[in-house]
């Protein structure tokens, strides 16, 4: 990656948002928790080596156990790394994190818009895609309206033809498609 130009972003804010050490330790804790849950649930359904081989929970139980043990080691190793004060590595800088969120948040809203959340109905994947691509191009790409509309409508229309008409794979649709009688 280093070979590529990084002239983007203008005045980048390189202050770290989190240290490598913190994230490393937190990840180890999360994996430990997953391991514990896996081991516990497997123990519940039977984790012994029965008369005719292992029971349903046998392998998952040990998988959970190994997850726990290895994440303890990873946790200790993480604590041994240098903290910020000692000049430790940064996990992600503030400006980079901002960039990541600028993609992550629209994507999450996009997925929520496809299928809806709880009682709120979704608008379907095609309408959501039009808006998503348009927002991305206008806001992050600073493209003009003409180009933006062309791409943001063209791509979902292509996918509609491809999936619904050609391959008959139904994707989530919303009120607009119902109104046009396309669902």
């Amino acid at each position: 990656m280093s070979e590529h130009d990084k002239e983007s972003g203008g005045a980048a804010d390189d202050t770290p948002a989190a240290s490598y050490r913190t994230i490393d330790a937190v990840t180890a804790v999360v994996i430990f928790a997953i391991g514990a849950v896996v081991a516990w649930d497997s123990y519940r359904i039977g984790a012994k080596w029965g008369s005719d081989g292992p029971e349903a929970g046998y392998f998952p139980f040990y998988i959970g156990l190994i997850l726990c043990i290895s994440s303890i080691v990873n946790f200790i190793n993480a604590l041994r790394e240098k903290s910020f004060a000692e000049g430790g590595e940064s996990f992600v800088s503030k400006s980079s994190l901002r960039m990541v969120f600028s993609v992550m948040i629209p994507t999450i809203i996009y997925v929520a818009a496809i299928g809806g959340v709880g009682p709120v109905p979704g608008v379907g994947i095609y309408v959501a895609s039009v808006i998503f691509i348009a927002v991305f191009m206008l806001w992050l790409g600073k493209y003009g309206w003409g180009k933006t509309l062309g791409v943001s409508i063209g791509v979902p229309v292509f996918f509609f033809l491809m999936f619904e008409i050609w391959f008959k794979v139904p994707l989530p649709k919303g009120p607009l498609e119902a109104m046009l009688g396309l669902d």
Binding site: V103, I125, F132, V151
Partner: peptide, 14 residues
């Protein structure tokens, strides 16, 4: 990237 990235994300969701 600002064109291809959202398209890739749409493809991933589909």
């Amino acid at each position: 990237f600002s064109i291809i990235a959202p398209v890739i994300l749409v493809i991933c969701a589909i």
